[in-house]
């Protein structure tokens, strides 16, 4: 089954890339933006039909590799 993961920067962590994207959008005429934060998205196709077990495994992947918990949060969601 497919599991999706969204990685976002924690609230207090500076996101210079998000800032530049914000400024660029602003320059393009999108003037009503308060903030842009950039993150990462993963789709993991895992050989496991039990949704809970699959999510547990993906959570372990998040903790060990996909996210750096000093600066990032992860959110696991069903893809299909």
């Amino acid at each position: 089954m497919k599991i999706s993961v969204i990685i976002t920067l924690k609230k207090d962590v500076l996101d210079p890339q998000g800032k530049v994207i914000h400024q660029t959008l602003d320059g393009m005429g999108f003037n009503d933006i308060n903030e842009v934060r950039q993150g990462k998205y993963f789709e993991i196709n895992i050989n496991e039909n039990d949704s809970k077990k699959a999510k547990d495994k993906v959570e372990e992947m998040c903790k060990k590799l996909l996210a750096n918990l000093v600066i990032e949060n992860y959110k696991i969601i069903d893809a299909q």
Binding site: V13, L14, P16, Q17, N68, V70, I71
Partner: peptide, 16 residues
């Protein structure tokens, strides 16, 4: 820092 042998992380430079 990724191994955790020393604390913290290294982010993208402030002015990109």
């Amino acid at each position: 820092v990724e191994t955790g042998l020393v604390p913290g992380v290294l982010l993208r430079n402030k002015y990109l």
